[in-house]
């Protein structure tokens, strides 16, 4: 009964909310093209600092950020500071989880996994690892990047956990990866500050748009992010699994 009232209440509010929000945003029709005063035009044409009208795949060189994936260029270059914060958020929640659970090192009692899973895991684990690595090394060229790549690496470890009830990750080593990746990210930023005058400035030549070795610090950072995210999520997962279950 109570839930019905809440339902009616929320429905009524939804109507109000949709009416209200329709003043600010058109709910049913979409633009045909990007509006000219949006900042995104600058990102797409890579002409925020340089006077450049068009970027051509595999031709344009020395663009202000050489990433073919524009979203990546925003994440890791134009708004890289956000990403540093984002990584920190993940870092912080990993720390939070580990602080909450403490490191008992003991495994929760788990069911023994089946033969198929155990066998398949051994095959799939390296594939996942490789795919994850591929995702973050090609983040500046193709969809993907550090975050999905890292998540995939973490997934591969989760798979190991599922497959082997005795599997334990060396949390200390994971932490080392986590910490040093983060430190390196900041150090890259500071190097940018020292050499280019801006924190996180792209101080490496950006190369040709579309090449693997291009776009300056972007792949570098994405690799770091990939490692860091992978390490963090793995650490979160293993914390959950290692936490002693008190009956």
């Amino acid at each position: 009964m109570k839930k019905i009232f809440i339902g009616i209440f929320v429905i009524a509010f939804s109507v109000v909310f949709l009416l209200a929000i329709s003043n600010s945003v058109d709910l049913f029709t979409y633009n045909d093209s990007l509006s000219s005063d949006s900042v995104s035009n600058g990102y797409i044409n890579k002409n925020v600092t340089k006077n450049q009208s068009e970027v051509i795949f595999n031709e344009t060189t020395d663009a202000e950020t050489g990433s073919a994936n524009i979203v990546t260029s925003i994440i890791v270059n134009y708004r890289s500071f956000d990403t540093l914060g984002e990584v920190t958020v993940l870092f912080l929640s990993a720390i939070g989880v580990s602080l909450l659970f403490g490191s008992t090192g003991k495994l929760a009692e788990r069911k023994k996994s089946g033969f198929i899973l155990r066998t398949a895991a051994r095959i799939i684990f390296p594939m996942l690892l490789v795919t994850g690595t591929y995702l973050f090394t090609h983040g500046h060229l193709t969809p993907g990047g550090g975050f999905p790549g890292g998540a995939m690496i973490a997934a591969s470890f989760l798979l190991l956990y599922l497959a082997d009830e005795k599997f334990v990750t060396a949390i200390e080593k994971i932490k080392l990866v986590e910490g040093s990746a983060g430190t390196l990210y900041v150090l890259i930023g500071i190097t940018g500050l020292v050499t280019g005058g801006y924190f996180l400035a792209n101080f490496i030549p950006t190369g040709t748009v579309g090449q693997l070795i291009s776009s300056g610090i972007i792949p570098l950072i994405y690799v770091l992010i990939g490692l860091k995210v992978g390490a963090e999520i793995t650490s979160v997962v293993s914390r959950y699994l290692q936490e002693e279950v008190t009956s």
């Binding site: 209440f9 929320v10 509010f13 109000v16 909310f17 009416l19 209200a20």
Partner: peptide, 13 residues
């Protein structure tokens, strides 16, 4: 939050 939003919206309109 919902109530405040509703009041504000009605008040704003």
């Amino acid at each position: 939050i919902i109530i405040v939003f509703a009041i504000f919206f009605l008040g704003g309109v």
